[in-house]
């Protein structure tokens, strides 16, 4: 029998729980928004305070789930055995429409070419038995 290799799983903690709950239950991508009037920046990855103004007044808000590729690569040698079966695959840094950067495997994207500036959209993907993660595809 072939051994099913588990991909690395995120650890859910009190700070990141709303993010994982939203993607797992509703398929929604939540990011944080600073509630300080003069700041109001959107934030990702999850923080305890706003990295722009250090305010602790952060609120989870739904992101549009759209963005633009900042840079991309094609992974030929994965960092973890759980990704071996999918190699080679596209991976990208995406600038969300709201501003923050999020990292994603790019499903169905062409390999070994620059995709900088291409628009992408999010859909939740199963990542292990009890976990979903946000994954982006080219528009």
């Amino acid at each position: 029998m072939t051994k099913i290799l588990q991909k690395p799983q995120p650890r859910v903690n009190s700070l990141t729980e709303p993010f994982w709950e939203a993607i797992n239950r509703e398929g929604k991508l939540l990011i944080q928004k600073c509630q300080e009037g003069v700041c109001g920046k959107y934030i990702f990855y999850p923080r305890v305070c706003c990295p722009f103004c250090q305010s602790s007044k952060l609120q989870w808000v739904p992101a549009k789930g759209t963005g633009v590729i900042l840079s991309n690569t094609t992974i030929h040698r994965p960092h973890h055995e759980g990704f071996i079966a999918e190699c080679p695959y596209a991976f990208a840094a995406v600038e969300l429409t709201e501003g923050p950067c999020i990292y994603t495997t790019l499903l169905g994207a062409p390999l070994d070419v620059s995709l900088v500036g291409r628009r992408v959209t999010m859909k939740p993907e199963q990542h292990g038995s009890n976990q979903k993660i946000p994954i982006f595809t080219l528009v």
Partner: peptide, 23 residues
Amino acid sequence: VRDFMSPQGFGGANGMFALHTRL
């Protein structure tokens, strides 16, 4: 890295710096 890059298949330091090289 553990929660928001590794599960997404970032390819380790190689993947991370491939993005900077491309840019």
